[in-house]
Structures are given as structure tokens and as C-alpha cells.
Design a binder for these strands. Structure first.
Lengths: 133, 133
DNA sequence: GTTAGTGCAAATGATTTGCAAACAG
DNA sequence: CTGTTTGCAAATCATTTGCACTAAC
């Protein structure tokens, strides 16, 4: 086995750039479409592969949508945090709250559960979408 | 159109009973398999349809798993609450925490998002699974 | 030259839907 | 009877994988 050496490729960088360019959660399909629209020649498969790779490296965040799709987002902060996601446009804002982590840990322990992890997702309508359509 | 009259059927009740009998989140497929194993003659399609129906009526809770499946759980309490779900066996315990709701509302409003809703999922290993295998 | 990355086409797997037969009211 | 519900098979659809090929190092 050994550490798989990662090569620097045009497509790989393009995918990362595309996610960073988005201001909210975007599905793999959307990111691919956006790249094609921007003139990038990339296969859908490759986009999926890089997205998973980046998520594994914790460079981006993965979020499972209600309709079964997976949405990704580039995160600037590397400490634990959550997001408020706009139901309409997908724009997201990072929010910070140390209390939640503590609460989750305590709540889980209280009922005898070990190694608790948590996932918090807050959805709402962003300022943009409230005004416009 | 008009309100579609809901008829009482053997299958419909069997599905509800099956979900109530489970002590944790179970996927539609698992519930179907369990019913078949119990001798119930029910089609997979029908199980899916009733599960959706029950979720729409808020009789049961729907949870999107990381692997893409949808898990359902029967909830006894009707006020706002969350669950701690066991990673191994799926058993879940209801936990209560009014603070989370407040926090989510405030956090969302603070960044200008309207009509916030939230979803909190805490995962851990239950006492059973810590001891046993 | 080796090894990792690419991308098309085909496979997967959970969920949905079309539709004719079975059933509740 | 009349409108629902059922359930099989076929359709969807996002995501994954097989594999021959190209690009990195």
C-alpha cells in the first residue's frame, strides 16, 4: 500500500477552484455543470472523485441534502463550526458555537453513549432571497 | 382532487406496527425485510409508500443516513426533540434540549436568515454495543 | 518508464412510478 | 359499485466502478 502520491493536475485544481468560488453548498452535479459552462473540460466522474478526495482531507465540507444529493462547501476555518444554509439559493454562512459541542457530548453521555459526534444543520432564507423572488 | 380518503388496510397497519416495534432508526429496506421475516406479505413499494405517508403526517421521523438511505423512527413525544443514535445498531434515545432551538434561531437571525429550522443529530455507541461486540 | 489521474460507458442501489388487479367502504 | 391500495416490473437518478488511455513525475 503506502501513501498514494498525489499528482498535481489541471482538473484537480480546477475542481478545488470551483468549490472555493461558490459561496454556498453546491451539489457535485452543479459544480460540474458550472465548470463546463466556464469552459473547463472535465468529466463528471473526475469531479466526483476530487470532491470526495477533498472531503476526506477535510478541505471541504460534505452535506447530505434531503433529496439525496450530496452538497460540498469550501471551509475557511478549520476549527469545529456549523453552517446556516439558505433553503433557496444554497448560500451558507459559518457560525460558531462551542456550547453545542459540549451539550451534545453531555447529552450523549447522560444516556450512556460513548464517543459522541454530532451534526447540526440550520436552514433558513437568506437576506437576498427574502428581498428578491 | 379533494381530501383523499384514507382506507384502513392490513398492510398499512402492519407497516406502522413494524416501525413502532423497532427501538431505533431502521431503513425502509430493513423494515420491509423484517416484515417479510415476520410472515407479513407486503410489497416493498407499499412499505415505502406508507413510510412516506406516516412521515408526512409526522407520525414517524425521517432521517437521511450518510450512505444515502432514509431511516424512519416512531416518536412518542410530539414536542420538539432530538435523538442520539447508535452508530452500530441504530438504537436511538430521545433527548430534550430547549436551548438548541433558541440558539439555532438566534444564530440564524444574527446573520440575517429568516424562518430558521434546524436539524441536530448526535451519533455515538450505545451501552449495548460498547459491552458486546 | 511507472504510477496516478481521466473519462466514457456500464453497473449499482435506493427510491419512484406506471398500471392492472385486489380490496375497503 | 367507486375510489384506494397494492405490488410487480420497469424507470429514475445521483453516485460508483471497470477499464483502456493519457499525463505527471
Amino acid at each position: 500500500m503506502s501513501a498514494p502520491v498525489r499528482k498535481r493536475t489541471r482538473q484537480g485544481e480546477a475542481v478545488l477552484r470551483a468549490v472555493q468560488a461558490s459561496d454556498g453548498f453546491r451539489s457535485a452535479q452543479e459544480i460540474h455543470a458550472q465548470m463546463r459552462a466556464a469552459g473547463e473540460a472535465v468529466g463528471l466522474t473526475t469531479v466526483y472523485r476530487h470532491l470526495q478526495l477533498l472531503a476526506d482531507d477535510h478541505v471541504i465540507d460534505a452535506l447530505h441534502l434531503d433529496d439525496g444529493q450530496i452538497a460540498y462547501r469550501f471551509c475557511t476555518t478549520d476549527h469545529h463550526h456549523h453552517h446556516v444554509v439558505c433553503r433557496q439559493c444554497g448560500t451558507s454562512v459559518e457560525i460558531d458555537c462551542p456550547d453545542i459541542g459540549d451539550w451534545a457530548q453531555r447529552a450523549a453521555r447522560r444516556v450512556g453513549f460513548a464517543a459522541p459526534t454530532h451534526r447540526v444543520e440550520v436552514f433558513g432564507t437568506c437576506p437576498e432571497c427574502q428581498t428578491g423572488a
